[in-house]
Measured scan of single mutants.
Amino acid sequence: SPISQSQFIPLGEILCLAISAMNSARKPVTQEALMEHLTTCFPGVPTPSQEILRHTLNTLVRERKIYPTPDGYFIVTP
């Protein structure tokens, strides 16, 4: 029987999409709110552990794709 394939999207890209959507909705993007958003909006995607989430967010900050503030994470705009 054929095996169904799913699209692979890197966690960093999913986080950027989620942060962008939450920023547009003016929702604060904390790590907890981000986990909740991922569970709700990406039900088929396994939720990352806190450690993996933190590591991926730090990587995105180093890559200058997002930036942290006391009010949460935001997408870097050119």
Rank of each mutant, 00 (worst) to 15 (best):
residue 72 G to R: 02
residue 2 P to C: 05
residue 46 P to S: 05
residue 69 T to S: 13
residue 66 I to M: 03
residue 34 L to C: 09
residue 52 I to W: 11
residue 4 S to R: 05
residue 44 G to Q: 09
residue 4 S to I: 07
residue 29 V to P: 04
residue 61 V to Y: 03
residue 40 T to Y: 08
residue 74 F to A: 15
residue 53 L to A: 06
residue 41 C to F: 13
residue 23 N to P: 01
residue 19 I to C: 03
residue 55 H to M: 07
residue 46 P to M: 06
residue 9 I to K: 14
residue 28 P to F: 04
residue 3 I to Q: 06
residue 12 G to C: 05
residue 22 M to V: 02
residue 69 T to Q: 10
residue 53 L to H: 00
residue 13 E to L: 02
residue 57 L to M: 08
residue 14 I to D: 03
residue 35 M to T: 11
residue 77 T to L: 08
residue 60 L to Y: 01
residue 64 R to K: 15
residue 4 S to M: 12
residue 30 T to M: 06
residue 36 E to L: 08
residue 53 L to I: 12
residue 52 I to P: 01
residue 19 I to Y: 00
residue 39 T to H: 09
residue 38 L to K: 01
residue 4 S to T: 12
residue 65 K to P: 00
residue 44 G to S: 13
residue 67 Y to I: 13
residue 67 Y to K: 15
residue 43 P to K: 14
residue 1 S to R: 02
residue 45 V to E: 05
residue 71 D to Y: 03
residue 62 R to L: 10
residue 66 I to S: 00
residue 14 I to K: 10
residue 59 T to M: 11
residue 61 V to D: 04
residue 19 I to E: 00
residue 62 R to V: 14
residue 26 R to N: 13
residue 14 I to G: 07
residue 6 S to V: 04
residue 17 L to V: 08
residue 37 H to K: 04
residue 35 M to I: 14
residue 50 Q to Y: 15
residue 28 P to W: 03
residue 50 Q to P: 09
residue 11 L to H: 09
residue 57 L to Y: 00
residue 16 C to K: 05
residue 48 P to D: 02
residue 69 T to C: 08
residue 3 I to C: 04
residue 55 H to C: 10
residue 74 F to W: 12
residue 21 A to L: 02
residue 70 P to I: 13
residue 39 T to I: 14
residue 75 I to H: 04
residue 50 Q to A: 12
residue 16 C to Y: 11
residue 56 T to W: 11
residue 3 I to A: 08
residue 74 F to C: 10
residue 78 P to E: 01
residue 39 T to D: 15
residue 1 S to K: 01
residue 67 Y to P: 01
residue 9 I to E: 15
residue 27 K to P: 01
residue 9 I to Y: 07
residue 23 N to Q: 06
residue 49 S to A: 06
residue 36 E to F: 04
residue 55 H to G: 15
residue 56 T to F: 10
residue 72 G to M: 03
residue 13 E to T: 11
residue 73 Y to V: 04
residue 13 E to M: 04
residue 5 Q to D: 11
residue 37 H to R: 05
residue 30 T to R: 07
residue 32 E to V: 08
residue 69 T to V: 05
residue 37 H to Y: 04
residue 48 P to S: 01
residue 47 T to Q: 08
residue 6 S to N: 10
residue 78 P to V: 04
residue 70 P to W: 05
residue 70 P to A: 13
residue 46 P to T: 10
residue 72 G to N: 04
residue 39 T to P: 08
residue 26 R to I: 04
residue 27 K to G: 05
residue 32 E to T: 13
residue 24 S to D: 11
residue 37 H to F: 02
residue 74 F to Q: 12
residue 49 S to P: 03
residue 62 R to H: 09
residue 42 F to G: 05
residue 50 Q to G: 14
residue 30 T to K: 07
residue 37 H to C: 03
residue 30 T to D: 08
residue 65 K to A: 05
residue 27 K to Y: 05
residue 21 A to R: 11
residue 65 K to L: 08
residue 33 A to F: 03
residue 51 E to Y: 04
residue 46 P to H: 05
residue 61 V to P: 00
residue 9 I to M: 15
residue 49 S to Q: 03
residue 67 Y to E: 13
residue 68 P to T: 14
residue 55 H to T: 15
residue 41 C to E: 12
residue 3 I to T: 11
residue 47 T to W: 02
residue 19 I to Q: 00
residue 73 Y to W: 10
residue 24 S to I: 13
residue 20 S to K: 13
residue 71 D to C: 05
residue 41 C to R: 09
residue 21 A to H: 04
residue 33 A to T: 06
residue 36 E to D: 11
residue 72 G to Y: 01
residue 72 G to L: 01
residue 67 Y to D: 15
residue 26 R to F: 07
residue 26 R to G: 12
residue 73 Y to D: 05
residue 57 L to K: 00
residue 63 E to G: 09
residue 31 Q to L: 08
residue 54 R to H: 02
residue 41 C to S: 13
residue 28 P to L: 04
residue 55 H to S: 12
residue 25 A to W: 04
residue 51 E to K: 12
residue 41 C to D: 09
residue 49 S to N: 04
residue 40 T to G: 09
residue 7 Q to S: 14
residue 30 T to I: 03
residue 60 L to I: 02
residue 53 L to N: 00
residue 12 G to D: 05
residue 13 E to G: 12
residue 6 S to Q: 08
residue 31 Q to M: 09
residue 39 T to F: 07
residue 47 T to R: 11
residue 57 L to D: 00
residue 59 T to I: 14
residue 18 A to E: 06
residue 65 K to H: 13
residue 13 E to D: 12
residue 63 E to C: 09
residue 15 L to R: 00
residue 29 V to Q: 02
residue 45 V to H: 15
residue 10 P to H: 06
residue 65 K to N: 01
residue 44 G to D: 15
residue 13 E to Q: 13
residue 31 Q to F: 07
residue 63 E to A: 11
residue 68 P to F: 11
residue 6 S to H: 02
residue 40 T to M: 06
residue 52 I to T: 13
residue 10 P to G: 10
residue 19 I to A: 02
residue 66 I to G: 00
residue 17 L to M: 10
residue 62 R to C: 09
residue 16 C to P: 06
residue 30 T to C: 11
residue 59 T to A: 13
residue 61 V to F: 04
residue 15 L to S: 03
residue 36 E to M: 08
residue 20 S to V: 04
residue 45 V to S: 06
residue 11 L to R: 01
residue 72 G to D: 10
residue 11 L to K: 01
residue 37 H to V: 01
residue 72 G to T: 05
residue 14 I to A: 12
residue 29 V to I: 04
residue 62 R to A: 14
residue 72 G to F: 01
residue 5 Q to S: 12
residue 11 L to W: 01
residue 54 R to E: 13
residue 35 M to S: 12
residue 78 P to N: 03
residue 57 L to W: 03
residue 3 I to D: 12
residue 55 H to W: 07
residue 47 T to P: 04
residue 75 I to N: 04
residue 68 P to R: 12
residue 24 S to G: 12
residue 32 E to H: 14
residue 68 P to H: 14
residue 23 N to V: 05
residue 70 P to T: 14
residue 60 L to N: 00
residue 46 P to Y: 02
residue 17 L to T: 14
residue 66 I to N: 00
residue 10 P to A: 11
residue 67 Y to G: 09
residue 35 M to C: 10
residue 58 N to D: 12
residue 74 F to M: 15
residue 65 K to Y: 05
residue 78 P to G: 03
residue 72 G to E: 08
residue 21 A to M: 03
residue 50 Q to T: 07
residue 77 T to D: 15
residue 7 Q to A: 14
residue 15 L to T: 15
residue 40 T to I: 08
residue 2 P to K: 05
residue 37 H to S: 03
residue 24 S to T: 15
residue 28 P to E: 08
residue 33 A to E: 08
residue 21 A to G: 08
residue 64 R to Q: 09
residue 66 I to E: 00
residue 23 N to A: 05
residue 45 V to W: 14
residue 54 R to V: 11
residue 33 A to H: 13
residue 40 T to C: 12
residue 8 F to R: 08
residue 5 Q to R: 08
residue 6 S to K: 05
residue 59 T to Y: 09
residue 7 Q to C: 05
residue 7 Q to K: 09
residue 28 P to R: 09
residue 18 A to M: 01
residue 2 P to R: 13
residue 55 H to V: 10
residue 31 Q to N: 12
residue 69 T to D: 10
residue 1 S to W: 00
residue 72 G to C: 02
residue 4 S to N: 10
residue 56 T to V: 10
residue 44 G to Y: 10
residue 68 P to C: 14
residue 21 A to N: 15
residue 38 L to Q: 00
residue 14 I to Q: 06
residue 41 C to Y: 08
